[in-house]
Amino acid sequence: MSTLEIKNLQVAVSTDEGMKQILRGVDLTIKSGETHAIMGPNGSGKSTLAYSIAGHPKYTITGGSVLLDGVDVLEMRVDERAKAGLFLAMQYPVEVPGVSVSNFLRTAATAIRGEAPKVRTWVGEVKEAMASLNMDPAFAERNVNEGFSGGEKKRHEILQMELLKPKIAILDETDSGLDVDALRIVSEGVNRVKDSHNIGIMLITHYTRILRYIKPDFVHVFAAGRIVEEGGAELAEKLEEKGYAEYVTA
């Protein structure tokens, strides 16, 4: 049983005009087995929340805390956060030229598991995970995200989640860029990992479509750097219908 506690989190980015406050006190607790959907207008700070938890150097924490099972995440290095059990499926996965997917996955698995996976079982494990996400095995020999289509990048993110088996996963718009079939396949992948390892999920999305496959226990409305409303799955339907007008002060 794991718990990610985000308390009054405040985050700024440095701009040419000085520091700009993006997150203005985010409170959210995610437990193993729970799925929390986060929905909110463009630019409201959803990715900022995701990146700040993962430790992207661009963001400055100006207040609040993030605890994983009581341990201060904000004090950890980026790789330590991953080892502690956090995973971020990025909205825009990064291309890493010259580093093959297979080398990358193995290096990551070695780091997370604390020892190199046995070659025999590892190859099978990767093949199986790729097959279940409908990924051509040829991707293993390609460079990380290089030349991948938008949807292929997203599948590759979930492939990593399957192999690294985090405690808490943050999925930042994993559904955008996926065709209807891919959406189902990727969602099934997420559910598979979730069910077999009882992980907690923060699912950032703009659409209710993915929520038909990955059922949220909670829906949070995010606006102007904080959570402004919370509810169950029905809240997502309402948002899809009515938009964010009532939460955004012009």
């Binding site: 430790g55 790789d79 956060r81 990064v94 890493v96 780091a111």
Partner: peptide
């Protein structure tokens, strides 16, 4: 490229 390093580190790979 900081973004490349962040991506790798976010998967547990030490800097």
């Amino acid at each position: 490229d900081d973004e490349q390093l962040f991506y790798l580190e976010s998967r547990g790979i030490p800097a």
